[in-house]
């Protein structure tokens, strides 16, 4: 049996959603302060993931499917250590990385400087960045804009540069949220090919994708999430067939 790389042990994730604390009137805030009562219904708890357990092994490419809000992205973030489970825990053989670096980039600086910034954010050294720079520029395909501030780019160009930087590095445990591969059709095709390439080289991959073709093509396992729990997991074909059948049923009713 191959080596386990990710063990998800009964993970629950709660979000605190603040519904307008402080937006109310000053008088109301004062009243609740004086009465010592917390203003009611300001904080809502959302139970996004409700007890998920699974193990992924070296060589696994796991596809996560499910409707919006089923907890896929939350689960992905908890594997990367970017979302603290409110109960349960995730254990990994090495630090898992979420493919995506957009938040680290800065629109005031040039594309080239953003390559440096994004690379450093992902934990690369300056030497590694310089080595990869030509291929990043090549993949982003934004021509001479690379030396202009990123704020001057079209949204498609920004998306391309973001993806090119994020995909430059190899990861042992890679987490991909497909929402990342935006842009025109041509670039989407190229970025999906790149994700496949990364998945082939990584030890273990978790992939959230809305296009099931991609999952069928690259994943050896699939997990169907529904309202924060695993509805079904196993062979990709089986899980997707069941999920698609369920979606059809819901459409009809």
């Amino acid at each position: 049996m191959s080596k386990p790389t990710v063990v998800i042990d009964d993970v629950h994730i709660h979000y605190r959603v603040v519904l307008g604390a402080g937006i109310g009137s000053a008088a109301g805030a004062l009243r609740s302060l004086v009465s010592g009562k917390k203003p009611s219904q300001v904080v809502k708890k959302v139970h996004a993931v409700r007890g998920v357990s699974m193990v992924a092994y070296e060589g696994d490419v796991v596809g996560l499917v499910g409707r919006n809000g089923s907890g896929k992205s939350s689960l992905l973030r908890s594997i990367a250590g970017l979302q603290k489970p409110s109960q349960g825990d995730v254990y990994t053989s090495s630090q898992a990385s979420l493919l995506g670096v957009g938040a680290a980039l800065n629109k005031s600086i040039t594309g080239n400087r953003n390559i440096t910034l994004g690379g450093l954010a992902m934990g690369m050294t300056r030497d590694e960045i310089e080595e990869l720079r030509p291929s990043i520029i090549d993949f982003a395909d934004i021509g001479e804009f690379i030396d202009m501030p990123m704020g001057t780019y079209s949204s498609g160009m920004q998306a391309r540069l973001r993806f090119a930087i994020a995909a430059a590095r190899q990861h042992e445990i890679l987490l991909v949220d497909e929402a990342l591969s935006t842009g025109d059709t041509e670039f989407r095709r190229r970025s999906q090919a790149k994700i496949r390439e990364l998945a082939a080289d990584a030890g273990t991959v978790f992939l959230v994708a809305h296009g099931h073709n991609m999952i069928r093509e690259v994943c050896n396992r699939a997990v169907w999430m529904d309202k924060g729990i695993i509805r079904l997991q196993g062979d990709t074909q089986e899980v997707l067939d069941a999920y698609e059948a369920d979606m059809e049923d819901k459409k009809k009713s």
């Binding site: 063990v7 042990d9 357990s53 594997i79 250590g81 995730v90 254990y91 990994t92 053989s93």
Partner: peptide, 15 residues
């Protein structure tokens, strides 16, 4: 069984 895997393969908690 999860705990056993974690121990056996020296996995570390992300939190």
């Amino acid at each position: 069984s999860n705990a056993q895997l974690v121990d056996q393969y020296g996995l570390t908690s992300v939190s």
